[in-house]
Nucleic acid binder design. Sequence first.
RNA 1: GGAGAGGUACCGAAGUGGUCAUAACGGGGCGGUCUUGAAAACCGUUAGGGGGCAACCCCACGCAGGUUCGAAUCCUGUCCUCUCCGCCA
Length: 426
Amino acid sequence: MLDIRFIREHADQVQEVARHKGIEVSIPELLAVDNERRRLLLEVEGLRMQRNTLSQAMPELAKQGKKDEMEAKKAEVRAVNARLTELEAELLTVEAAYRELMLLVPNIISPDTPVGGSDEENVEVRRVGELPVFDFEIRDHVTLGEMHRLFDLPRGVKVGGSRNYYMTGIGVFLHRAVQQLALDVLAGRGFTAMDVPLMVREEMMTNTGFFPSGREQTYELPRDEKWLVGTSEVALVSYYSGETVDVSEPIRLAGVSNCFRREAGSAGRDTRGLYRVHQFAKVEQVVICKNDPDESERLLQEITQNAEDLLQLLEVPYRVVAVCTGDIGQGVYKKYDIETWMPSRESYGETNSASNLWEFQARRSNIRYRDEQGTLQYCHTLNNTAVATPRILIPLLENHQREDGSIYIPVALRPYMNGMEEIRPE
RNA sequence: GGAGAGGUACCGAAGUGGUCAUAACGGGGCGGUCUUGAAAACCGUUAGGGGGCAACCCCACGCAGGUUCGAAUCCUGUCCUCUCCGCCA
């Protein structure tokens, strides 16, 4: 959410951003509704003042026994109330429309965000790591997984429907090892580990910016009016919702959670293997800091670096791309995706996504701090994947495979794999 | 799931239909006086949302409604917390 005053003063700029982000919202319409809202507010508040003044005179009249005058004033208030009831109903309608529009307004974007229509126009920032050269016919992660019984896709589909899987045997250990490694690395860098609620109120989905736009992507539990989170970011940011926080040092959180995504509208895309599934596990970084563009930019670099360091520990090649306007999302001010080399796809695939939301979430969630002057300010919030699995197992298995089908286990993972150095065919 | 109690500022808590919400009282925090320093004592302070050019006004007693000229106070619903019972990893 943006400050309505900012929108009034930068209407054209905001409309332009909406166009770039592909969000259908009319700023002129919003401003018209806003004007109507303020006009009604003025009138309603005036009537309320009348009512208050008249009512407050009652005790005095009662004391003096002026019954007729009291009755006259009562009638007057009733008249005021009648008018008020009408206007308040009108105001309620207008405010609902106002809120609905406000929730659609996109965040502005950083000056260095590339302009583009889709992920095709994201701009590569850097490549790290050598692409592996195989002098044999490579196996994709599905084949490798079947070979070593790391997961079971057909039975996942039998039991859970499409895009479901079982992790099995050593696969489970790998699945957990990458998470534990990520958690340990982050804990060592000042992050507080958090295991979070996965079922949350609708309000939290809206506050964090996933609703209204992402409703279709989210699993609902209608009986209990809860929603299954697609990322622990929802619960991590909402942890502080409505609070005044101390951000003299940035708040660094590392969330551990399962994530649930309906993947509506992606039917037929990435159907093979573990790339796009309905349920996965993720260690997520969330940072909450001062309303200071320099500081949040530094922190964006920091959480991006954390993810890169993890990929380097996993010894897989990756690249960082600056996400363009068309792919950046409604609430995001600036975003880097990290894409990891997936040999079977012969391309880099997204494994991490680092966002600076500026005030967008903090405004919706009402997360503030007191600055040096003692004034309440909205925080900046940021997030980035540390590791999402099983997707990360795709590059891990495929890049580290050998001709005989065995798989090299990176040194950093071995402590979490009971010292295992490679996965050998049975 | 059943029965009961309760949600008021940083915390505890008073207020049970009318200038009582920059909200009694107590505690805590911060600043000061005193002191070699500290403690104690005393003094001060502790900043919500919105509208309006402004004067100023409206809203805020968990949240949403209702009754009333007027609601922290009465009624209904709802969320949450606590106690007891039941069930349970």
